[in-house]
Computed example of a mutant assay.
Amino acid sequence: MKKSIFLLFTSISLLSSCSSDDSDTIIDPDPTPDVNAVRLVTDPTFGNILTDADGMSLYFFSRDTKEQSECNNDCKTAWPIFYKADLTLDDGLDAADFGVITRTDGDKQNTYKGWPLYYFFNDNVAGDTNGDKVGNNWYIAKPDYSLMYAEAQLIGRDSDGNDQNFTSEYVVGDELTFYMTSSTGRTIYAFVNDTKDDNNYTAQDFSNDPIWPIFHIDIDRLPSILDRNDFGTIDVFGRTQLTYKGRPLYYFGQDTNRGDNYGVSVPSPGIWPVVNTDITPL
């Protein structure tokens, strides 16, 4: 009887010892893979889009032209902000393109190429993209937009050099106006004296190009309000310039900060209009 008790005690001791020794080396047979905070997901309609770790779509707001959120109060309820302090990224995304802002309400929010990132309250499951083109000022967040579509107050300057608000009709007044920008928010203009597919501004030696630089980029992906077929290219003394509805496109050299649109009043209001889908084709 004593021998049996001894053998039982020895077996229990050995079992406990083995369990203790192995506890540091047990491997989860079905580990959960790490998922990045921002994912690069292929959508059948939009191509590559940005989502969170759960696959919920992220969005840009056209009014956020100055790297600050213009979506507050009720807007913020419908478009919850996206923020992760530890912003791990999928391959194909560049950490230099991401940033963080502190909103006017004190909350922090992640940005991509200066555009704050949001969710849409009516996206219910991963893969939903119901927020795209809502109000013509919300667009699915993509890493490869060639251009962006902005909506902001036009601010030129008066004869004394002071800031002055203009409407879409280029008269003094307050109004939000739609217009195209580069992917990073630089305003794009047309010239009223240009003719169809013909640049009538740029000098052959490009001596005046620093004032109104010709604009060109290879069109890849566009916000859904823009039609790729409306764009073309022309040759300007050996350089390529992008056109929209036959109108050559330019930057303004004195737009030094993101969101500037000072060109609307140079040399007088309306000579260099911003460019949007309502512009008259040439």
Rank of each mutant, 00 (worst) to 15 (best):
T77W: 10
S182R: 04
D220I: 05
G253K: 01
I49D: 00
A190K: 11
G131Q: 04
L14V: 15
A85S: 15
D128Y: 15
N130G: 10
L226G: 05
Y119R: 08
T184P: 04
N73R: 14
I81V: 12
Y112A: 00
T65L: 07
G259M: 00
T256G: 12
L117C: 06
D158E: 02
A190D: 06
Q254E: 13
A37F: 09
S23I: 13
P143K: 08
T129W: 13
N36P: 10
K3L: 12
N137P: 00
I225T: 13
T177I: 01
N162Q: 15
A152M: 06
T233N: 08
G127V: 03
I217E: 13
T184W: 02
L154K: 08
D107I: 04
R239H: 11
S146P: 06
D160P: 00
D144T: 12
L7K: 14
G92S: 12
S168I: 01
P267C: 05
V192L: 10
V192D: 14
C71Q: 07
A37R: 09
K113F: 01
N122S: 14
L176S: 04
Y119S: 07
N162A: 13
G47R: 02
R247G: 00
Y145T: 06
V41G: 04
R63T: 09
V236W: 04
G238E: 12
R239F: 10
T88A: 14
A190V: 07
K84L: 12
K84Q: 15
K3M: 11
T65P: 00
V275F: 06
D24Y: 12
G270Q: 03
F121R: 03
P143D: 14
E175Q: 14
S13M: 15
K76M: 13
T277H: 01
L282F: 15
Q241W: 09
D52R: 05
P29E: 09
I234H: 06
F191S: 03
G173P: 02
T280E: 15
I5E: 13
F6N: 11
Y139T: 05
N229C: 03
G55L: 14
N124L: 13
N72S: 15
F98P: 08
D64C: 07
Y251W: 03
D194A: 07
V172C: 01
I49L: 08
D97C: 09
Y83T: 03
F120H: 08
S4F: 14
L93W: 07
K66S: 05
K76V: 09
I27P: 07
Y83C: 09
Y251H: 02
P33M: 06
D28E: 12
T77G: 09
T102Y: 13
S19W: 00
D278W: 06
G55Q: 09
S265G: 03
D260V: 07
G270P: 10
D28L: 05
S11L: 15
Q254M: 10
T32P: 02
P143L: 11
R39G: 05
I140H: 02
Y118T: 02
T51D: 08
S69L: 11
A85C: 05
D132V: 02
W79K: 04
N200R: 14
V236G: 05
K3T: 12
G238F: 09
V125P: 02
T181W: 03
